[in-house]
Design a protein around this nucleic acid. Structure first.
Lengths: 156, 156
DNA sequence: GATGAAACTTACATAAT
DNA sequence: ATTATGTAAGTTTCATC
């Protein structure tokens, strides 16, 4: 599905704040309620808008430690990569995971209360699947954490 | 503010899906509507719940490339770090930024349409502030992208 | 904390233009 | 696409226990 300027403006607005009522959203994007509502619904049904979620401060939940873990595979087989993906899905502390084109095969962002919490995750991974190496970079400070994607709402 | 088991359950539920109506939320956490609503409001006003946002598929917006950029500071002065933080705030393509305790001083997650888009961000950074080094790791694939924090809703 | 209900807002659907 | 309208559903507040 192609997204025009109005669709992108709807998406940008809802990425910033999903609580804006339809009437105001329609006003922002320059439509009346009915067509605006149809677009929102279409964006949801087509999967452009995946969900609406609450953004919560991790510190306030006692989740003060973020670790970027690099994991390299012991072998370049599809089955290993598949199993690894399934394993990550089962570990909620693994917030994000990317396969890289660099030194390490994967980078994981792991969120835990403290160092002991991280070590538990590290163990859980190494006991569940063979890995060649796991490196860990600990975050001292979070400068920026954005959920809204950088979308251009001006051009056609 | 201390969060009890019910607060954590409210937060966990809304992190998974912020569209659940209050009546159902109350039912899930085992409260009636009014006290449940008061808790939600308190969680919002105290900043535990920061926002409610739409989660959007980056691919569908033409944002197919994620880059993890490592940036090291040329000097360890507070003013450099302050300026760097301000600079990152001005660049929407920089989704997340963490100061690390590892090799590189910072890691940035940058989301752009393509390699050219990344190079523009890289240039913008190096022209705005002196850096010792910028490394780039390109994501081949995103295995997991979670917004809900790993929170324990069972213990007291 | 629970209940019940009023007052208000929003979502959703439909019809006419 | 617009305006208008109507109903259902959800939110918020309040009084009472």
């Amino acid at each position: 599905m192609e997204l025009d300027r109005i669709d992108r403006k709807i998406v940008a607005t809802l990425m910033a704040d999903a609580t804006v009522p339809l009437a105001r959203l329609a006003d922002i994007v320059g439509l009346s309620q009915t067509p605006c509502w149809k677009r929102v619904r279409r964006l949801q049904e087509s999967g452009v808008i995946r969900a609406r979620v609450a953004v919560v401060d991790p510190e306030r939940l006692g989740l003060g430690l973020t670790v970027f873990a690099g994991v390299s595979a012991p072998e370049q087989t599809p089955s290993w990569h598949d199993r690894f993906g399934e394993l990550l899905d089962e570990i909620p502390e693994v917030m994000d995971a990317y396969q890289l084109a660099g030194n390490h095969d994967y980078v994981l962002r792991i969120v835990v209360p403290d160092m002991a919490g991280f070590d538990r995750i590290r163990q859980r991974i190494t006991e569940a699947i063979p890995v060649r190496e796991i490196s860990a970079n600990f975050a001292l400070r979070r400068l920026k954490a954005q959920t809204a994607l950088p979308i251009d709402t001006k051009s056609a």
